[in-house]
Design a protein around this nucleic acid. Structure first.
Length: 89
DNA sequence: ATATAGCGGATCA
DNA sequence: TGATCCGCTATAT
């Protein structure tokens, strides 16, 4: 577990409910604006994916990226969270 | 829309 | 070290 990974995990865990961020955004917050690939790598090697809202991290284009649970599920989770967000509002 | 290169960090040999 | 992989991105067709 490297410092960079910790930063990434911390940052992603702070993403609000229903919000989505790009890999680039996360990389910038981690202090390595060009390390978006490393972010993806870190997440794929992440030991606790269920405790990290990695489904809120998508392409910079806004498209759903890859996901260890499957892209369709990832998209569903995002929409579900948006729904919850509007519900509790 | 597709192809390509580049890039940072992890992993393996 | 060096090669290779990745849940990527920007740029050029």
């Amino acid at each position: 577990m490297t410092v960079f990974e910790k930063k990434v995990l911390r940052i992603i865990s702070k993403i609000p409910l229903g919000e989505v961020r790009s890999y680039k955004w996360v990389a910038q917050k981690a202090g390595k604006p060009n390390a978006y690939r490393a972010v993806a790598n870190a997440l794929s090697k992440n030991k606790y994916p269920l405790f990290i809202p990695c489904h809120r991290v998508i392409y910079s284009s806004g498209e759903i990226g890859g996901y260890f649970l499957g892209k369709p599920l990832k998209e569903k989770l995002i929409k579900l969270e948006q729904k919850i967000k509007s519900m509790i509002k």
